[in-house]
Amino acid sequence: MATSMNTITLERAGAAARPARLPIADDKAMLKAAAELTRDLVKPNAGIYWADLIGSSLVGYGALAVAILSGTLWVAIVAGIVAVLALYRGMSMIHELTHVKHASLPGFRTGWNALIGVPMMIPSFMYEGVHNLHHAKTRYGTAEDPEYLPLALMKPWTLPVFILVSALAPIGLLIRFGVLAPLSALSPALRETVIARYSALSINPQFRRRMPQGDEKARWDMLETVTAIWALALIVTTVTGVLPLKAVLVFLAVGSGVALINQVRTLVAHLWENEGEVMTVTAQYLDSVNVPPPALLPVLWAPIGLRYHALHHLLPGVPYHALAEAHRRLSDVLEPDSPYYKANYRGLPGLVGKIATATMRGR
């Protein structure tokens, strides 16, 4: 899941000095095992989804309230951290909304938008219709992929900029829904710009959204209207002094914390080594990252199955709660020389170091 609605253009490093990469052929044994061993894992468990959503929301907003109301600094800081982690987990479920068949989880999209999407100003249309392009076989890693940049091939300074700019996401979302959405209702030209450039959780600055049509447009308009009312209410009540400035600042700080964690996770979700060529499924898998057990911290920084991001690219239809079982089954049957194991990494520091080293070497 990418964080920013758009991002700055990041400069590539040493393109002329890099040798051409040889194409990676599909590993038929791995792809066949992945398909055959997981046929019974594709049904989402509604109880798990709803419990996770409601639990994350209760903990997140409860901790946010404590952070706002507490007069003790250390209590406010601890509560703020809890709020960031819980709301980050809840917001990460937007990734599931783009893959799950909504008929198998009646009302879940509405529930997620009510509890997370609208209050945090990331309604589901910001990701639905966007993330599926990242999984399109002929789009992954190309200029048409909204969630891909060759970060490992760029200048070293681009990595900290990539991460730190995400801290501005709550301000950007407040402006997008509280200012641009109402104004765009009065200007067709501005409306086209808002939809094309500021209506997607993407990291590719060249990506442009198409205008929504049919049922998608009706759902989009409803969610955008409700979110705009919420954003306007935050702005007006803050300016008029009805809502204490501290409450708004804590809310925005928690939102920034969520965006920062997600951007770091995005940084290590792939190796970011493709320069625009169409890739095989196996090549896409090897450019992606799993951080399986025994690592413990990914439970916090890569929740809702995101620790199995490479496996998810093999099996995008498997719900997050079944990915651990899918990983176990594949690990039990695939030979030690299978490319499956080459996408498994130990943890966050090594992955960040790998990408940072690649930028410094210009390769």
Rank of each mutant, 00 (worst) to 15 (best):
L223S: 06
I261S: 04
S57Y: 15
L53W: 12
V78S: 15
Q213R: 14
E277M: 06
N45C: 09
D332R: 03
L286H: 10
T240Y: 03
M93R: 12
A152E: 03
A152V: 10
A295L: 00
R39P: 06
V82F: 12
G62T: 05
V258G: 14
N132D: 13
V268A: 00
A33T: 06
R209W: 14
A46T: 06
E275N: 07
L164Y: 01
L249G: 01
A295V: 06
L245F: 07
K246V: 11
A13W: 03
A185R: 04
L232S: 06
R363S: 15
K246Y: 05
M120Q: 13
R328V: 10
Y320I: 02
E216Y: 08
T9M: 11
V242I: 07
P293D: 08
A283H: 09
T158P: 03
D287G: 13
A34P: 15
I68V: 02
I54V: 15
W112S: 01
L87H: 02
L234G: 04
P19F: 13
E275Q: 05
L159A: 02
S187T: 00
H312C: 03
A34K: 11
W220S: 04
N344V: 08
P106F: 03
L174A: 14
A283P: 09
D52G: 02
A259C: 02
Y345S: 15
E11W: 09
T359P: 05
N290D: 15
K28N: 11
Y341R: 12
P212W: 04
L174F: 13
